[in-house]
Design a protein around this nucleic acid. Structure first.
Length: 262
DNA sequence: ATGGCTAACATGGTTAGA
């Protein structure tokens, strides 16, 4: 949390307005330096910046009415804040970036994709291609780069509670996995898998059909790191605690810690 | 069994999520 360590989190809160009490409760128990939020679902004018300041967090946000919206919160001032993918006139607020202690952090809310073959699926793949081109430039400028967020893609079958039932569906389709593979091929590492993890580790569970109680989930919230930053990663975990609370987000936060002293 | 649940916007029922 301080000195040589940097802890970065990511959490799809599914409405910051509704989840602000959970965020406060979780932050009180969870030391971190930087936190990317997705699906804040409010315009910038309604962003609860003063509430978050009371929780010790400043930062920057990129919101819109009703849908999407991302924020990058930090205990230290953010440098070089950027919103959206440069040169891509995306009307949906899905990306915000900033730097802390020489580490570049890009926070993403990848489109859902709805169904394979749909217009939204095509948008998802186009969006991921644009993200890849943007990240290639970010990697060239920032050796220490983390790309955190809700990817809406389960990287492998072990990230899916029932791979047979999900085969070919959106979030696991070959096209999406190829797009994620293209991001990894830039030199990014899914740091969660750098460490031993519990079997059946997921970060999202459907609200319906008692999915959380059955641990019927997907691991779709990821921390990707450049090779130089991944080499400094000392741990990565999913914190399912707030998913057990009353009126939860359907996603759990993910945390990764980096030792910057080396 | 193509549902189940939650949130925004609106104030009943649609859109969207994953």
């Amino acid at each position: 949390m301080s000195g040589a360590e940097l802890t970065v989190g990511t959490w799809n809160v599914n409405s910051l307005r509704v989840r602000l009490p959970h965020l406060a409760q979780w932050l009180a128990a969870t030391p971190l330096d930087v936190l990317g939020l997705q699906e804040i679902k409010l315009p910038d004018a309604d962003f609860p910046g003063a509430d978050l300041e009371r929780l010790g967090l400043g930062g920057a946000w990129h919101g819109q009415k009703t849908y999407n919206g991302v924020a990058l919160l930090a205990r230290e001032p953010l440098a070089g804040v950027g919103r959206g993918i440069p040169g891509y006139g995306d009307p949906q607020a899905r990306v915000i970036a900033g730097s802390v202690r020489g580490v570049r952090i890009v926070n993403v809310y990848v489109p859902n994709g709805q169904a394979v073959g749909s217009d939204k699926y095509a948008y998802k793949l186009e969006w991921l291609a644009r993200l890849g081109a943007y990240l290639a430039g970010e990697l060239a400028r920032h050796p220490l780069l983390a790309v955190v967020g809700d990817y809406n893609i389960a990287p492998e079958d072990r990230d899916v509670h029932d791979p047979q039932a999900w085969e070919g569906q959106v979030h696991v389709s070959p096209g999406e996995r190829a797009a994620l593979g293209a991001l990894l091929a830039l030199g990014l590492v899914d740091v969660f898998r750098r460490f031993e993890q519990p079997e059946r580790s997921y970060s999202w569970w459907d609200y319906r059909a008692a999915a959380f109680r059955r641990n019927a989930g997907l691991r779709i919230d990821l921390v990707l790191a450049s090779s130089a930053l991944a080499a400094r990663c000392t741990g990565c975990r999913i914190d399912a605690t707030p998913r057990r609370w009353e009126r939860p987000s359907d996603h759990a936060p993910v945390l990764a810690t980096f030792d910057l002293s080396a």
